[in-house]
Design a protein around this nucleic acid. Structure first.
Length: 543
RNA sequence: GCCCGGUUCGUCUAUCGGCUAGGACAUCUCCCUUUCACGGAGGAAAGACGGGUUCGAUUCCCGUACCGGGUACCA
């Protein structure tokens, strides 16, 4: 009996081991095999201007993945191109992340154990790795001037090969440490001849890796050129910097745009040549966000051309002083912006489209990220914002609305009234900026009265009705919307008029035009004095 | 040119070999509302093409086409 039980137990434990093993196998075929490794992701923008939709989406996917797996999200500034430095761009990136609520755990601003997080400040570190590669024969010095490179491209340009590369064949014909001989190289360097360090791409090899989104991707090394690793000014290029920093910062998963896919073999080889192959992060190349109307990556210009924002927030170019509109200033709620970005290339497999950031973190998974690029649809973007405005309560909306109203010279003193107004009008506001037109009349008498909408059907009977309505309302002791409606309708009946014919004129008197929530709600909220005054005013215009 | 990636309604997408191909935005019709919205009901609208594999392909494989990305001492 005891034996039987223990055998049974044994069987069960074997089963458990089997299950565990198969789980392990499955897990190891995917990025989950780094479960034992702390998840650390990074977003590494170059501070050259406003942060684009696609950039923020890359941030978002990084952030969601990190938070989902209890990991860290690092912001690293890739400012290795000093010629492209734009003042204010870095601060703009921080403000954008803050507005979106995607706060890094480590960054130049927040600090962290791997500081500095600005590549320009890490300059000294890169040289040794480049030298290490040269010593090991994986890289070489190249002394070719920009003019010589230009000449090479011209000389070797043919119809079949319009853009010749500095590759395994061409390098034999150029001035570098592979062709020059050791003495000459030492001499040139000691004389202060500017040089770059290039990777020596091997001949006839295949470089493969498993992309988290695309699966296995392979490249022939013969097709890849000898990319510059270290520039003449001593700064690394992206290729070297991304590998060195991802290694030093212990990045576990590297997400970036699809435009980086062709240079992936260079990076893979670098990880290998530097001896860090086992530490290499999992790669994921995110699909691009495309122009709505045709071909190519979405750019700032498309927004200008088609009339929608592309940057997260307003960006003023310090050189031209030109401002490009951002989603924030256009009237988007940060939650809506994040939500719509998440849905560009990802979904949770259900019909749900509205997600809070908490839900996104909970439900996000890389294997539901799309391979194909997505055309940006501004109409759909607005729909997300509208949904968010509708489902947000007045308390949440109030600060945004108050600020917008203030910017439009509408003073709000009573927050109760503001909340009430927001509840009344929010369903007709697609953008936060719509609150101005939709609620101005609650706080100010309309300056423009659409009198033409009343005139055609205006007659003495109606004139009399409104004169009586003034009296009735003046005497009224109750001032709820339902009371006002009741009085209005009773008076209409007494005058043998249909209330419907009178409601439009009444609305125009209060609002100025054919829009807005229920008239009696408006009258109730603006109060007796204001209601009566507005009726009188329009009556004056009609006589 | 070469290399890499992608391809389901106009747009974003679901589908992990069984499909009368589902949802959302936009669009159209109607209802609600004597404003504008919101809301509700409905309509039109898709698997680039050609070969395989299979009892059966949108789904798997190959080719073609098309689209995109890359081809810098830019990222």
């Amino acid at each position: 009996m005891v034996q039987a039980t223990s055998r049974k137990l044994q069987a069960t434990s074997i089963e458990i081991i089997l299950v565990a093993c198969s789980f392990r196998l499955v897990a190891c075929s995917s990025y989950l095999c780094t479960m034992n490794k702390k998840v650390r992701v990074r977003f590494a923008p170059s501070p050259t201007g406003g942060l684009h939709l696609g950039g923020v989406r890359t941030v978002l996917f990084n952030y969601l993945f990190a938070k989902k797996h209890g990991g860290d999200f690092i912001l690293r500034i890739e400012d290795t191109d000093q010629t492209r430095f734009v003042p204010g761009a870095e601060e703009y990136i921080f403000q954008t992340l803050e507005w979106c609520g995607l706060i890094p755990d480590e960054s130049p601003k927040h600090g962290g154990p791997h500081a500095p997080y600005r590549q320009s400040e890490r300059k000294a570190m890169y040289m040794q790795y480049a030298e290490q590669l040269v010593q090991a024969g994986y890289a070489y010095y190249a002394f070719d001037t920009p003019e010589e490179l230009e000449a090479m491209r011209n000389d070797f340009k043919t119809a079949e090969n319009p853009s010749p590369q500095y590759n395994q064949f061409i390098r034999e014909k150029m001035r570098n440490s592979l062709t020059l001989g050791e003495e000459e190289v030492t001499r040139l360097i000691s004389e202060g001849m500017p040089f770059v360090i290039r990777i020596k791409m091997p001949a006839g090899e295949t470089v493969s890796f498993t992309d988290m989104i695309r699966g296995e991707v392979s490249f022939q090394t013969d097709q890849v050129d000898d990319k510059v690793l270290l520039k003449a000014d001593g700064m690394p290029t992206y290729h070297l910097a991304v590998v060195v920093d991802d290694y030093l910062m212990k990045i576990s998963h590297a997400f970036r745009g699809e435009e980086w896919l062709p240079s992936a073999p260079v990076h893979i080889l670098l990880w290998k040549y530097l001896g860090w192959e086992n530490e290499m992060p999992e790669w994921a190349h995110l699909p691009l966000i495309l122009k709505p109307d045709g071909n190519g990556k979405l750019s700032k210009r498309d927004g200008d051309r088609l009339g929608f924002p592309v940057f997260a927030m307003d960006w003023t170019d310090p050189k031209t002083n030109e401002t490009t509109i951002g989603f924030r200033e256009r009237g988007f709620l940060p939650e809506a912006f994040v939500n719509l970005l998440a849905m560009l290339g990802w979904n949770d497999g259900t019909d749900q489209e509205i997600f809070t950031i908490t839900e996104l973190i909970e439900k996000f998974s890389m294997d539901r990220v799309h391979k194909g690029g997505a055309k940006f649809d501004y109409e759909k973007a607005k729909w997300y914002n509208h949904e968010w405005i509708k489902q947000s309560d007045a308390t949440k909306l109030a600060p945004f609305v108050q600020q917008i109203l203030a910017a439009n010279n509408i003073d709000v003193t009573d927050s109760n009234i503001l909340h009430h107004v927001i509840d009344l009008v929010k369903e007709r506001c697609t953008l936060l900026s719509d609150f101005t037109a939709q609620s101005r009349f609650f706080f100010q008498s309309p300056t423009q009265i659409d009198i033409d909408a009343i005139k055609p059907k205006w007659d003495e009977k109606k004139n009399l009705f409104f004169t009586e309505l003034i009296r009735a309302y003046e005497l009224s002791t109750l001032w709820e919307a339902s009371d006002l409606e009741k009085e209005f309708k009773e008076l209409a009946a007494a005058n043998q008029l249909k209330p419907g014919e009178l409601m439009l004129p009444f609305r125009i008197m209060l609002v100025g035009g054919k829009f807005g929530p229920g008239v009696f709600d408006i009258a109730a909220l603006i109060g007796k004095i204001e209601t009566v005054a507005r009726i009188k005013h329009t009556l004056g215009l009609l006589s």
